[in-house]
Design a protein around this nucleic acid. Structure first.
Lengths: 354, 354
DNA sequence: TTGAAAGCGTTACCAC
DNA sequence: GTGGTAACGCTTTCAA
């Protein structure tokens, strides 16, 4: 780092409600009444207080307020995601932020990298910071720890994945239905030897997608031994290697269902390396950036990520509002539809069909 | 939302230091000493206190602690970005989080959408929440407001863009040099009619890139009227339209320098629509997802986004640590190199070179 | 080595 | 209408 010059003009120092009260010539409580919009303050008095506040550039200390106040919130939400730099998660993040900002609520975000230990640590860190609520994409493993770590008045909304050993609001895509859709689409093109590439089996969505895949194949009575299934593909490099191996075998698949973002990218890389991208059909789960610029375009089952974020945030505030009114809502399970987006790769027919 | 079942087992209620003290049979202050690792506590006493804490599952209230403590931090950072779902910003976000987590610091993130009013509002919201520091990608407009809005003891580190009317640490890419590099690369392929497509001129990086572009052209003595420059392209759709128009003109450019992510995507769409992607060279600023899977691969000047985030976070903590030690660092300007990544589109030669 | 009391900046309660 | 005074959960000061 290269030094450049001196610090800018000095910035504002700290100032309390007491000084504002003195400046306005009123009691401390009257200032409090004015800033909180409480009744029983003469208009003239309120005016003087507001002037004093303006003059002194005072802003109430939220932390001190919340100390005494019980039913007041900190105006913060904790968001736990696979990783903030995953495009799917980032879209969810943005949608949640857009809902939260209308409520003057700030959002903490934390990346979990599918690590259960990190999940617990992140939840604890947010609870320590007194977030009003938690929205979380849980990693593999049990969520039973939440019962002892999260105070009963802090709502939890799960997003993208259903929790284990814990019941709460959940907002997620129709992973099973989407996978059935994708697989049927390949079957409808005449494919029978379809390979399925999946993420870690312990991840809820991964399991759902695998189930949908097998279910659709079963519908068509596709022979089970003609259906290579590879699981635990956690990187696009691993997916690429798996695809290369599958395609090198004597009874190579004529189509591939890649059940996740990174896996799809690995598969496309593999096909390209072999020059077979116009030869082997691909349908991916999760949309892929610039999928329409690739040749052939990649056919995917796209999730409504922004909808998911918005819905989860709405639900969070609904619940928070309900509690404010003394009510309590029953946990809900919201399943969002997915969309089959045909771009070419999924419409390729088997080379030697018959 | 569909109701599913009852609430999970009741979660932990609130518990204070006083109850821990009673449980351990010690004074309140002794508990405080133990949790803060202060000296002068008998090992046996400390043991009993720790047991009581464990038994009661007590966690100190950070907000209450910080009320009395003056030099202690809240353990939070405010991060202001163009948008959390922009891949470049998301990479920065993740890198910052990775540094912060080692310090037990949580990160608030906020999207600005290039809106100066939103920038001010977001900074104020974070200051109100008593963040320890602010890392920000400023939008167009002046940053002079920071002097009156941010307390003098809250460090500010600018990332990606240099601020206006304000001096503080800055971490950014060599936008000018990178643009010179990109443009020279096109010139070296024999191109002379090179179009430059840019974002809003008021954005610092955009201006820098434009300057680099023109500077490189000037070096080669390229005729100024042969250099169409389009600015204020804020969406990929706008960039696509601009490219289509340029390419339809009688003296269409043989190469395009697209000075930003979304602009590059728009340009590639336009070329594809015209079927001229193997005909017109393109070099983009900012890397593009899957740029290697497109045909031809997109040549770009890539920024080291993760490095930027890490460097900014490191600098923030350096400054925070220095202040803790009573020292003060001079503001620094850190410029990170960029990398020309050749993938094909930038190596195309002009169709009728002469 | 320990703890009682004062204080941090605000809101709640209750008298004026 | 208004303003003391206690209280929030913790740290700091200081006396024991």
């Amino acid at each position: 780092m290269t030094p450049v010059s001196d610090r800018p003009s000095a910035r504002r120092a700290r100032i309390t409600i007491r000084e504002v009260a003195r400046e306005a010539g009123v009691g401390i409580k009257t200032v409090s009444r004015v800033v909180n919009g409480e009744p029983n303050v003469a208009a003239a008095t309120a005016g003087r207080v507001r002037e004093a506040i303006e003059r002194l550039q005072w802003e109430p200390d939220a932390h001190a307020s919340n100390l005494r106040r019980t039913h007041t919130r900190t105006g913060t939400l904790g968001l736990l995601l696979g990783s903030v730099d995953n495009p799917f998660a980032a879209t969810i993040h943005r949608a949640i932020e857009d809902v939260a900002i209308h409520r003057d609520v700030a959002v903490f975000a934390s990346s979990l990298d599918e690590d259960p230990a990190r999940e617990v640590a992140a939840v604890e860190a947010f609870v320590r910071r007194k977030v009003d609520g938690l929205i979380l994409t849980c990693s593999a493993g049990s969520q039973s720890y939440l019962a002892e770590v999260v105070p009963p008045d802090v709502p939890i909304v799960f997003i993208d994945r259903k929790p284990s050993d814990f019941t709460a609001d959940t907002v997620r895509s129709d992973n099973l239905g989407g996978s059935v859709l994708a697989t049927r689409h390949l079957l409808a093109q005449g494919h029978r030897r379809i390979a399925g590439l999946f993420d870690r089996a312990a991840i809820w969505t991964s399991e759902q997608r695998r189930e949908g895949f097998l279910q659709a194949l079963d519908e068509y009575g596709a022979p089970a031994d003609a259906v290579p299934v590879v699981s635990d593909l956690t990187t696009s490099a691993a997916a690429e290697a798996a695809a290369l191996q599958l395609l090198a075998s004597p009874d190579a698949p004529t189509a591939i269902f890649s059940a996740q973002n990174l896996i799809t990218i690995g598969v496309v890389h593999a096909l390209r390396k072999l020059g077979r991208q116009h030869d082997v059909a691909v349908v991916g789960f999760d949309d892929v950036e610039l999928a329409d610029l690739i040749d052939p375009g990649i056919t995917v089952v796209a999730q409504r990520a922004a909808d998911m974020g918005r819905t989860a945030a709405d639900r969070m505030f609904e619940r928070l509002d309900a509690r404010g009114a003394g009510a309590d809502l029953p946990p809900a399970d919201c399943v969002l539809p997915v969309d089959l987006v045909c771009r070419g790769s999924g419409e390729l027919r088997p080379a030697h069909s018959g």
